[in-house]
Simulated assay, not measured.
Amino acid sequence: MINFIKKVLSDENEIPSSKRILGVLGGISLIVVMFIYHNDTSIDAVLIMTLGALGISGAVSIFKK
């Protein structure tokens, strides 16, 4: 099971991918917030933070070259 999780969170070079880790953590956070807090503001805040972190991670990898 642990090997499966490592493979899912790693890229083609067997290196952990920050975008995949952020995506999984953001998805889990969004699900938890949706069940605990039933207001739109909390759900929007988690969604925007996750999308922002993924966007920054993507921009870093694009402009790194």
Score class of each variant (00 low, 15 high):
56 I>N: 08
61 S>L: 15
48 I>F: 04
46 V>P: 00
50 T>S: 07
24 V>F: 10
3 N>S: 12
43 I>R: 03
30 L>T: 01
19 K>H: 07
57 S>Q: 11
40 D>K: 15
62 I>F: 13
5 I>R: 00
43 I>T: 10
55 G>L: 09
42 S>G: 10
29 S>K: 04
49 M>E: 13
10 S>R: 00
30 L>C: 08
39 N>D: 15
31 I>R: 00
53 A>D: 04
16 P>K: 00
62 I>V: 12
19 K>Q: 13
55 G>W: 04
14 E>N: 14
36 I>D: 00
10 S>P: 01
43 I>G: 05
55 G>V: 12
63 F>D: 10
18 S>I: 05
33 V>W: 02
65 K>V: 14
29 S>W: 06
57 S>M: 10
36 I>N: 00
6 K>G: 03
3 N>M: 03
43 I>A: 11
44 D>W: 11
25 L>V: 05
53 A>C: 11
35 F>Q: 09
28 I>E: 12
48 I>W: 03
43 I>C: 08
47 L>M: 11
31 I>K: 01
47 L>K: 06
64 K>I: 05
61 S>Y: 13
50 T>L: 02
56 I>H: 09
43 I>N: 11
49 M>H: 10
50 T>K: 01
15 I>H: 02
46 V>H: 00
56 I>T: 15
13 N>G: 01
51 L>T: 04
42 S>V: 08
40 D>S: 13
45 A>W: 06
45 A>V: 13
37 Y>M: 12
50 T>C: 05
49 M>T: 10
9 L>D: 09
4 F>R: 11
32 V>F: 15
23 G>D: 05
18 S>D: 15
35 F>A: 12
51 L>I: 07
2 I>K: 09
20 R>N: 13
35 F>H: 09
14 E>L: 11
37 Y>F: 14
14 E>H: 13
35 F>V: 14
52 G>P: 01
10 S>H: 01
31 I>S: 02
64 K>P: 03
24 V>G: 04
19 K>R: 14
46 V>I: 07
27 G>C: 06
53 A>S: 14
57 S>V: 07
62 I>R: 02
20 R>W: 05
32 V>Y: 13
25 L>K: 03
28 I>F: 09
60 V>F: 13
47 L>E: 05
7 K>L: 09
16 P>S: 07
21 I>G: 05
33 V>L: 05
21 I>N: 04
10 S>M: 03
23 G>Q: 03
31 I>N: 02
18 S>F: 10
56 I>F: 08
46 V>F: 00
49 M>A: 15
19 K>V: 06
1 M>Q: 09
6 K>D: 14
15 I>V: 08
46 V>L: 01
9 L>W: 02
59 A>F: 15
60 V>E: 00
20 R>M: 14
48 I>Q: 04
52 G>D: 01
